[in-house]
Design a protein around this nucleic acid. Structure first.
Lengths: 147, 147
DNA sequence: CAGTCTTCCTACCAACTAAGTAGGAATACT
DNA sequence: AGTATTCCTACTTAGTTGGTAGGAAGACTG
């Protein structure tokens, strides 16, 4: 699996949003707790203008809610426990497994290589199992337990 | 997981070598059954000169044995049942999982994102389980069963 | 209503990687 | 000697990724 900078930043930003809002005690989910893009960029060392285009993807995917203006910012649309790592990856990246730039399920093998398609599908399923099982809340809890 | 053209071609070439030698009845493993690069290229629609650089990788990784000259060609160094898909992928591609171009185990997260590293390691393990369990012989057998 | 803050959106640039090509040197057989 | 084939290096080309610039649109304050 290849994790692009875009996907990596997206996850870190989502975690930072969940953490900032969650510190108020409502489990990371509350309409009033908006976090500014500049604050996220600073806390996770992400170039601001690049981050903004990523936040746009996340909003279009329905994972974030945004608000403009002086007291604007971003907030989760669902509790952190209901957002999985896979949700975020698919919001910015497309398919989890790709063969030569195309999704794994349209590979087009022939002859002796016909069995490869099933291997890629099995890999895709194995990855999905891991990333869909892990939620943002899990990752934040791990951190709290480790510190 | 991203499967590059190089990795895809490598697997198809290895399968073709195993199949060509295996048709003699010795299970795909015999020093005398050399397959020419041009023959592999034609059977799996791979650009010949590109294939040659891939075969070189496979030879350096110890998966193929080669012989020059008029009756030259390539053969497996081990029976097809002892070569896994993962062996081939690692021969041409490096790490199975990479984050921003670097191996998953040296990610360097801080703050709220610290838990991500464990996610990537879990993904890497899940992929390895699939590709190391599947051998070239398995794939050839699947094809025989399906036809 | 003017001013300020922030998100929103499009277009663009630079660097890198992947994919594929070309040409020749070394080796093995006849 | 001649021919066939692997071997190896260097190069070209096209696409993607990572990142930047500059403004338009909306939201609050006074």
């Amino acid at each position: 699996m290849y994790v692009s900078a875009r996907a990596d930043y997206a996850l870190r930003a989502m975690l930072a949003v969940a953490d900032a809002a969650g510190s108020t005690g409502d489990g990371g989910y509350g309409g009033g707790e908006l976090v500014k893009a500049a604050s996220l960029a600073e806390r996770q060392d992400i170039p601001l203008s690049f981050l903004q285009s990523i936040l746009l993807d996340l909003r279009r995917a329905g994972l974030l809610h945004s608000h403009r203006g002086t007291e604007g910012g971003y907030a989760l649309t669902r509790p952190a426990a209901e957002i999985s790592v896979g949700d975020v990856l698919r919001a910015v990246g497309g398919a989890l497994t790709s063969v030569r730039g195309m999704p794994a399920d349209r590979a087009g093998y022939h002859g002796v290589a016909a069995g490869l398609r099933d291997v890629w599908l099995a890999v895709d399923g194995a990855i999905a199992l891991v990333v869909d099982r892990t939620t943002l809340a899990d990752l934040l809890a791990d951190r709290a337990a480790a510190s």
